[in-house]
Computed example of a mutant assay.
Amino acid sequence: MGKQMDSRRAARAAKTTLAALALLAWHGAAQAQTATLEAGLLHHRLSDGLGQWNQQFVRGTWRTSEATVWNADLVNARQFGAHGTLAVAGVTHVFNDDWYGSLGGSYGSSFFYPKGRADAVLNRKLGAAKNIVATFGVTAVNARDGHRDRSVLLGVSWYLPNALVLQGGTRINRSDPGGVMANAKYVAATWGYNKQQYISVRYDQGEEAYQYIGAGVTDLLVNFRSNVASATWRKWLGPTHGFQLRAEAYHNPYYNRRGLEAALFKEF
């Protein structure tokens, strides 16, 4: 049938903005930390009697060279009345002045997380100033009930003066069994400076072929559209520590989800 977008969007949000911030630092020629550790909480309320989401998470990055950053996340979650954990690992590498890419994988232990997910992304800097980045990515997701998603990501990022970055793209997704297309689009903007603060906003909209809201066979939403808006504020309180706040609002024809994520981070 298809893609369980709400939980997977939330998983991607939980995965972290740390890798993206590391790339902003590279573009801005900012000082690079060796490692970052972040821990926090998430609380979301759902409408239509679907209860609450609660998460505790730890995130980290580790720079092993000037060109390579590893990242890992561990999430303990309660969603739709069930408990689950999510483990994420990945690496981002700068190949040369024009090319950089990333590999990532994740494993979830409950119906609302994928049993397995793998991502590969390649980025190319364009233009005389190398301030435009074209992105191509592929993703494979296997759900616990046998559903499979295979998708292609096409995106562009524009690094403007005055510390502004604009982004946009689309994800073309095929879900099986059934060969259902469930595509999505996004736009985003980020402003800020490393060691000071980053403020970002993002909006996604698209199609969902399926979404489980419970462990039972009947707890299944099929073939609908949804959208999600988020805003993130990452603030340094000192040279190596600070906090991050993220607000998110999700909507589909069956329920709404609203909530906040709060975290503290330390750089080494």
Results as ranks from 00 to 15, higher is better:
R124F: 10
S110L: 00
T85Y: 14
N96L: 06
F243R: 07
Y254C: 04
R59L: 01
L42M: 06
A11Y: 04
T135P: 02
Q33E: 11
V91Q: 01
S110V: 00
T17S: 13
W53F: 03
D98P: 01
W158S: 10
E248M: 04
A188I: 00
S7M: 02
A39M: 06
E66C: 05
Q4K: 08
T170L: 09
F111H: 07
G178Y: 08
S226M: 14
G206D: 09
R9V: 15
T240R: 14
W70G: 00
N96E: 06
G137E: 09
Y193W: 13
N76C: 03
Q33W: 09
Q56N: 04
H251G: 05
W158I: 03
I132V: 14
S151H: 02
W191N: 10
G178F: 08
K15I: 02
K3M: 13
K185L: 09
N162M: 10
M181D: 15
V58W: 04
G259R: 12
I199T: 06
R171P: 00
K125Y: 05
I213W: 08
S200H: 02
I199L: 14
D176H: 09
H43I: 02
K125D: 10
L221W: 12
L23C: 05
E207P: 00
Q196C: 01
D97N: 12
R45A: 09
N194F: 01
A118R: 03
K115T: 07
A134I: 04
A20F: 01
H241V: 01
A118E: 03
R63S: 04
G116R: 14
Y193I: 01
P253T: 10
I132Q: 15
G101S: 05
R225P: 01
W191M: 10
S47G: 10
A39T: 03
R63K: 10
Q33N: 07
R78W: 13
V75S: 10
Q196K: 13
A22Q: 15
A128G: 13
R171K: 09
